[in-house]
Amino acid sequence: MNAEDLRWRRQLARELTIRARAPTREVMSASLSFGGKARRIGITGPPGAGKSSLIALLAKQWTERPSKVGVLAVDPTSPLSGGSLLGDRIRMDEISANSNLFIRSLPSGNTSDGLCPNILSLLDAFDEAAFDHVILETVGVGQVSYQAKALVDTFVVVLVPESGDTVQAMKAGILELADIYVVNKADLPAAAKIAAELRSIALWRGRNESWVPPVILTSATDNRGASELSDAIASHRKASLTEERMAALAIARREYLLRTLLLGQIDELLARNRTELQHLPLAESLRALIAGLGSGADVTSKSR
């Protein structure tokens, strides 16, 4: 790695730490772009679906072009200790010496949407560092990570033959949001069946839309499907990169940010007033909290 590579790498690493830890007021005063040069790809799916391995396949393709690829890999924070064990890197081993690749492991923190605090400003950092792609790997949740859809340009949902039938995934609503379906571990016997089911869902969804989500079969063990997936992402980008959609995405990202900031303030207020809230009737507690959100004031027994 040359000196120039090291310089931007260290700078980006530091910047990501600062942004991940930034308190609410700093996030509000920062200017966010809600989407820049780097193409944003979201990867979601149940735990163990092979999201990290799939990202390794994609990143290998793209870094060899060459293009600069950033990965933000989110793993769950323990609700008990606030600590986390971040292990997504292990699956990206083969490619991680590539100087065009930058991987950052992130704890999900106090969020419950499979993402992590200040995610929008973390994504922006890759635009500022002139990256071509940034891949966002959500926590392996499946049933709540639909928030990620608005934050990325292309949303990939990964399923595996052992996920059971697609009804599980349909319940979760995540299937309605995918721009691309991936059936990973396609070397397993039930892969063709789940792919067929997904294809019929894709056709159903495509009846009113110009984009029919493709179903890609991948397998990290025999390196299968990487170029098909990469092509599908490029086609989706081409098909969807209208001014109208970009404007809609910017609005959705702005709304997401406001919502997370608001939720953050609610959490702070609740934590600060834990004792006071024990002693008030529910309706009064709620009233005092809503007032507190507006004024920044704590809940006191005087709010009776």
Binding site: G83, S84, L85, L86
Partner: peptide, 8 residues
Amino acid sequence: RDAGANVI
């Protein structure tokens, strides 16, 4: 992790 750290 149980002591609150983010362990990679």
